[in-house]
């Protein structure tokens, strides 16, 4: 509860800070809209040449893009400002400041800062999802529920995986995992079915981008008949697993940093 209040305050302070720079806000939102338009245009180009992309019809691919944008927005707002370039924070002493605070360091370091400029992307992604829902056929209430559950699971998984990657900095301070993450993340804009089978496995189990976009969109557009439920259960399980792993890795990392094991 208190953690939620801290999170709320962090957000309020950041929003207050950004509203002071209205020009930056306008430019960011404009760039986001252009970026989104470019993504939609690219999808349009693809569908001038084909009727389905790896079995996905245009409205379905649009839903996938929407889910991807939505989670990307959340990632860039709440997670990346904390965990990108985390190794520098470890070597630069920022970690010390957090360790001194009487709040769980896991929480403060992975969610203690945010970048509200990225929030409009969440809305844009949501709008795309709605558009896709209207354009698609046979969207059911069950599908929508499955999609929402999977999106939530996707966000948790993203957070956990990002923490896991960041904790690598405790063992290899020269290695910056943001690299692989941001690159792999981009692969999420298309159905995982278009990639080579090996890459597809990677995207499902190692950097689970599939949970972020492909599965929620699948649940939404084809979620009738229990597929949504099945995917939802899978997502919830994966989210719990990832979160547990992240917590353990974090504790081990902090123990190593403070010298408790050496």
């Amino acid at each position: 509860m208190r953690l939620l209040r801290i999170l709320g305050r962090v957000l309020a302070l950041s929003v207050q800070r950004e509203l002071a720079h209205r020009v930056n806000l306008t430019i960011s939102v404009t760039m986001m809209v252009i970026d989104l338009a470019a993504s939609v245009a690219t999808l349009g180009l693809v569908f001038t040449q084909t009727a389905t992309l790896a079995g996905w019809r245009p409205a379905e691919a649009l839903a996938l893009l929407g889910a991807f944008q939505l989670v990307t927005g959340l990632l860039n707002t709440f997670i990346e400002p904390n965990l990108a370039w985390f190794a520098e924070k470890v070597t630069g002493g920022r970690l010390d400041d957090t360790l001194l605070q009487p709040v769980p360091s896991f929480f403060m370091l992975s969610l203690g800062a945010c970048q509200p400029l990225a929030l409009p992307r969440v809305l844009l992604g949501g709008a795309l999802l709605v558009w896709a829902t209207v354009a698609g056929e046979g969207v059911t209430a069950l599908g929508v529920a499955g999609c929402v559950a999977l999106l939530a699971a996707g966000v948790v998984i993203t957070w956990a995986v990002r923490v896991l990657l960041a904790t690598l900095a405790f063992w290899a301070p020269g290695f910056e995992p943001s690299v692989l993450f941001s690159a792999f993340w981009q692969l999420g804009r298309y159905p995982v079915g278009v990639y080579h089978p090996v890459v597809r496995q990677l995207l499902t189990y190692v950097v689970p981008v599939a949970f972020v976009a492909t599965f929620p969109a699948e649940a939404l557009m084809r979620g009738g008949g229990g597929l949504g439920l099945g995917l939802g259960a899978l997502g919830a399980g994966a989210a719990l697993l990832a979160l547990g792993a992240a917590g353990l890795a974090w504790r081990a990392g902090v123990r190593r940093y403070t010298g408790a094991t050496s």
Binding site: R2, L13, Q16, R17, P102, V103
Partner: peptide
């Protein structure tokens, strides 16, 4: 980016 006052208020929250 915070003002001093905001930073102090944040400390109040963190340290209860």
């Amino acid at each position: 980016e915070l003002t001093v006052q905001d930073a102090l208020r944040f400390q109040q929250l963190i340290y209860e």
